[in-house]
């Protein structure tokens, strides 16, 4: 009989998550959402990025093409599976 142990673990996990969630709710963690968006920026700003060069533009294109190739491969597998499945 292992179910009672698993079920108690689930229950404990659920109750703890609920407690944390309710704490967050009461503590106003869901309130200042607009300000929260800026939190990573409340520091000295990063240095201005270096200007783009021809080689870095080429690199960006290569990366973009790679991502599109990945998407096409995934789509092709899906279509193939649907046709032959």
């Amino acid at each position: 009989m292992y179910f009672p142990y698993f079920a108690s673990y689930i229950l404990i996990g659920f109750v703890l998550s609920l407690i944390v969630f309710l704490w967050a709710l009461k503590n106003g963690q869901f309130r200042e959402q607009q300000r929260a968006r800026f939190l990573p920026l409340e520091d000295e700003p990063d240095r201005a990025p270096a200007p783009t060069t021809r080689i870095s533009r080429l690199e960006t294109w290569a990366l973009g093409l790679l991502a599109v190739a990945g998407l096409l491969a995934s789509a092709a597998i899906l279509v193939y599976a649907l046709i032959n499945g």
Binding site: F30, Q33, Q34, A36, R37, F38, P40, L41, D43, D46
Partner: peptide, 13 residues
């Protein structure tokens, strides 16, 4: 990502 872009997160919610 927000830091490198120097722009706020799209949505914290």
């Amino acid at each position: 990502i927000p830091r490198a872009c120097q722009s706020p997160l799209y949505s914290h919610t």
